[in-house]
Amino acid sequence: MNNLIYAVIFALVMGGMYAALYALNHRTPVPEGCENLKEECEGCTISNCGNHPSQSKIIEGE
């Protein structure tokens, strides 16, 4: 029973840490000259990559 409580607390701590870091990271301003990294990405032909233009099309289209 104790284990279960530990597990829940641990999961909450880890999840909270990730959420906090994620939010902090997205609030940190992007350095100068890097604003259009996604649009300038030419490394990819395969739609799997999250930066690929077709990904944003799928998201907008639906």
């Binding site: 030419e42 490394g43 990819c44 032909t45 395969i46 799997n48 990559c49 690929h52």
Partner: peptide, 8 residues
């Protein structure tokens, strides 16, 4: 995934 995606 990156093997195919980022190898251009």
């Amino acid at each position: 995934c990156p093997f195919l995606g980022v190898s251009k």
